[in-house]
């Protein structure tokens, strides 16, 4: 049952992504000002949004864990954060490649680049800390605490950068400003949906591993007790 769900989600996400790739490569015309590379938007921005969505899903799971002490929430939180890190990494790498052509540099301390990078660093700490904790209950509680702190920090990072965003080179967010070409809206949306589908499949695999890891901890204790 679980296996089937994972495969269905993963495969349908991949198919959507392939279909979208076809649209992007064959159907859509090049962006007027930037040429082909302008189409990077259709993978770059959806990845960022998917990552952000998942970070906030993760903090909800973390709060739920602290409230209920149900390990299902802890597994879900770490799985979702790891997948969110993957999407944020995609966002950073594609953005960097895009920037190399359009801005002529790989990296700039632009407001939103910095923000994404900071989110990545915040949750990298979370992922690095987990294996250093041996006891499952403690690991889950402390992780939830760190995840909540990290999520609370994101709006502040946002705010801090907004105060000093004189150097921004980024165009305004395409969704908020409504500058996205109507023809691009559907592929944009499909990218996001595909990412969420693939992300859910990967997160489900990761949840299983986390559960197995807890079983390992439990067996170790049992061995110790016998």
């Amino acid at each position: 049952m679980r296996d089937k769900t994972i495969y269905t989600l993963g495969i349908s996400g991949t198919l959507l992504l392939l279909y979208n790739l076809h649209t992007i490569l064959m159907v859509l015309p090049d962006e007027a000002a930037q040429g082909t590379i302008g189409k990077m938007l259709l993978i770059h921005a959806p990845a960022a949004i998917a990552g952000m969505t998942l970070y906030f899903v993760a903090v909800a799971y973390s709060i739920m864990f602290l409230k209920t002490k149900n390990f299902a929430y802890d597994s879900a939180a770490v799985a979702v954060i790891e997948v969110a890190q993957v999407f944020t990494l995609i966002n950073l790498v594609t953005g960097s490649i895009w920037g190399h052509i359009i801005w002529g540099i790989w990296w700039t301390w632009d407001a939103r680049l910095t923000r994404q990078f900071m989110c990545f660093m915040l949750y990298l700490g979370y992922l690095l800390m987990r294996p250093a904790l041996n006891e499952a209950t403690q690991r889950a509680t402390i992780s939830a605490f760190v995840a909540i702190f990290a999520a609370a920090d994101i709006p502040l990072v946002w705010l801090a950068i907004r105060v000093h965003d004189a150097r921004t080179q980024h165009p305004g967010p395409v969704l908020e400003t409504g500058t996205l070409d109507p023809a691009w809206r559907i592929p944009f949306l499909i990218s996001w949906i595909a990412f969420m589908l693939i992300g859910s499949a990967l997160a489900m695999v990761r949840v299983r591993q986390e559960n197995a890891r807890r079983e390992i901890d439990s067996l170790r204790r049992e061995l110790h007790a016998i």
């Binding site: 930037q34 082909t36 590379i37 189409k39 997948v83 993957v86 790498v93 594609t94 990967l202």
Partner: peptide
Amino acid sequence: DLNQTYFFYGYSAAWLIVLGFI
């Protein structure tokens, strides 16, 4: 041209990152 090459790099990078994670 360089523009298209880097577009290709960008999309491959995205796929490769997911593949790496898998």
